Lab assay of single mutants.
Amino acid sequence: MFKRLMMVALLVIAPLSAATAADQTNPYKLMDEAAQKTFDRLKNEQPQIRANPDYLRTIVDQELLPYVQVKYAGALVLGQYYKSATPAQREAYFAAFREYLKQAYGQALAMYHGQTYQIAPEQPLGDKTIVPIRVTIIDPNGRPPVRLDFQWRKNSQTGNWQAYDMIAEGVSMITTKQNEWGTLLRTKGIDGLTAQLKSISQQKITLEEKK
């Protein structure tokens, strides 16, 4: 169930391209415009997507990853294993993690069937560096609404905000991946996880038929 919630949630996290980005210092504006741009692209490019579902990787690479804190999220997933990894191991892992996100997020976007969304009203940021933004996803086919909290983090150097995690039903996506990959990290280390991520990233994206 959580895996499905995570995939549905990713439908609204794909941010804007650099040329049309919203105010990078306001995570609420980023979330709002990102959702609108993403849904528009999914709707307008269905012919290309249906002809070649792996085209979704391109959308992810162009529109999402430049505005997601990939390395920060990847380091959180590694936890204690990050500090013990060599620079070469980290570089290989982050490259594999990025390719994994292209496949995983692309597969999530393949679930698009006309969903709509509501974003919580903007709250004062103050001096906060981590801000959760509640998004409610509404399914046109009558499924119950899904309420999610996207975690946005302020870059201490640039002042810009980027998304790095999502919490559904009190469970963090980062925590879920830590639990899912924990045994592999304990037995085969970061190299074993890197190899698995490379394998997963090679899987073809498949479209979910409308139910």
Rank of each mutant, 00 (worst) to 15 (best):
P15S: 14
K211W: 14
A108S: 08
M173C: 01
T183P: 10
E33R: 05
L76K: 02
F39G: 02
I130F: 04
V70F: 05
Q46D: 07
Q115R: 02
E208C: 15
V135N: 05
Q118W: 09
T158R: 11
L42S: 03
W152K: 00
T116G: 14
G114S: 10
T194Q: 15
W161Q: 01
Y100L: 09
E91C: 05
M173V: 05
D139G: 12
F97W: 08
L16D: 04
I200N: 08
L101G: 11
R153C: 03
Q69K: 02
A22F: 09
A22D: 09
L76P: 01
I138A: 12
T58Q: 05
R90D: 05
S156T: 09
S17A: 13
Q46V: 07
A95C: 07
A92I: 09
K102Y: 15
M1H: 00
T20D: 11
I13R: 00
Q203T: 10
K102H: 08
M7S: 02
T136C: 08
L10D: 00
D165K: 00
Q46P: 05
V171W: 03
P47G: 13
T136H: 14
K210F: 11
M1Q: 00
T158I: 05
L30T: 07
I137F: 05
P121F: 14
P27T: 07
G189T: 06
E180A: 02
Y100H: 12
G182I: 09
M1Y: 00
Y82T: 01
L101A: 15
Y67Q: 03
K43E: 07
Q162R: 07
L76I: 13
W152P: 00
A95W: 07
Y72T: 00
G126K: 12
L11Y: 03
P47E: 10
V68A: 03
W181N: 15
L56E: 08
A51C: 12
T206L: 10
A163P: 14
E169S: 05
M7N: 01
Q162H: 08
D191I: 04
A18E: 13
A110R: 09
A19S: 11
N52T: 11
I137Q: 15
N52A: 10
K188G: 10
A34N: 05
D54L: 06
P121Y: 15
T86G: 08
T158E: 03
Q89R: 04
Q151D: 08
Q202V: 12
A34K: 05
A110K: 14
E33M: 06
A88F: 09
A85H: 04
R4H: 09
Q24A: 13
P47V: 10
A19L: 02
S172P: 04
N155E: 00
V70G: 13
G192N: 15
K3Q: 04
Y67V: 07
Q36F: 15
S156D: 02
F94C: 07
Q80L: 05
Y100A: 12
A104T: 12
V146M: 09
L193D: 01
S199C: 11
Y105H: 04
M173T: 01
T187Q: 10
K43H: 05
Y117F: 12
D165H: 01
R57D: 13
L64R: 00
M6A: 02
Q46M: 09
M1E: 00
K37D: 11
A75F: 00
H113D: 05
F39R: 01
R147P: 02
P87L: 10
P145N: 09
Y28M: 11
Y28W: 09
L184E: 14
L185P: 12
A21Y: 14
R50N: 11
G142H: 11
Q62R: 07
Q80H: 09
R134W: 00
L109A: 15
P47C: 06
Q89F: 05
L109Q: 07
Y100K: 02
A22I: 14
F2W: 09
V70H: 13
Y112I: 05
N160L: 07
G189H: 09
L193K: 01
L148A: 08
T194W: 03
S17L: 09
G159P: 10
F150W: 13
D127C: 09
V131P: 00
E208R: 07
G106I: 06
W181D: 14
I133D: 01
K204R: 07
A163H: 14
M7F: 07
E208H: 08
T175C: 03
Q196Y: 09
A95F: 07
I133K: 01
S84A: 11
A104K: 01
T187S: 11
T187Y: 15
D61A: 10
E99D: 14
Q115V: 01
I119A: 08
L65W: 10
A120Y: 09
T86V: 06
Y82Q: 01
V70Y: 06
L197H: 04
K198V: 11
G192L: 05
K210C: 13
G170D: 02
G79E: 02
S156N: 02
E208L: 13
A14L: 14
R57I: 15
V70I: 11
D139Q: 15
D32T: 07
D23I: 09
P53Y: 07
Q162K: 09
Q151E: 09
I59V: 11
T176H: 01
A110F: 14
A108D: 02
K198Q: 10
N26E: 09
D191K: 03
P87K: 07
I130T: 04
I13M: 13
M166C: 15
M173A: 00
N160H: 08
L78D: 00
Q118N: 11
I205C: 15
G74H: 01
E91D: 13
A195D: 10
R4G: 03
Y82L: 06
A18N: 13
L11P: 02
K29S: 14
E180H: 02
A95H: 14
N155Q: 01
S156I: 03
G126S: 12
G74L: 00
Q157N: 06
R153K: 02
F2L: 13
Y82D: 01
T25H: 11
A9Q: 01
D149H: 08
L193Y: 10
P121G: 11
E63G: 03
S201E: 14
Q69P: 05
Q157V: 12
Y82G: 01
V146T: 08
R134N: 02
Y28R: 08
T38H: 03
K198N: 08
I133P: 00
I119W: 09
Y81H: 09
Y112M: 03
A95K: 08
L197K: 01
A163K: 05
L42K: 00
Y28Q: 07
I200F: 06
Q48F: 13
T58D: 09
N52K: 11
I137R: 01
P140D: 15
K198F: 07
F39V: 01
V171T: 02
T116W: 09
Q48T: 11
Q46K: 07
L109H: 13
V146C: 07
A195I: 10
N44Q: 14
T183S: 07
S199T: 10
A75Q: 01
V60Q: 03
K188W: 04
A88H: 09
Q80T: 15
M166A: 07
E99Y: 04
Q62P: 01
T187L: 08
D139F: 15
A92F: 10
P145I: 05
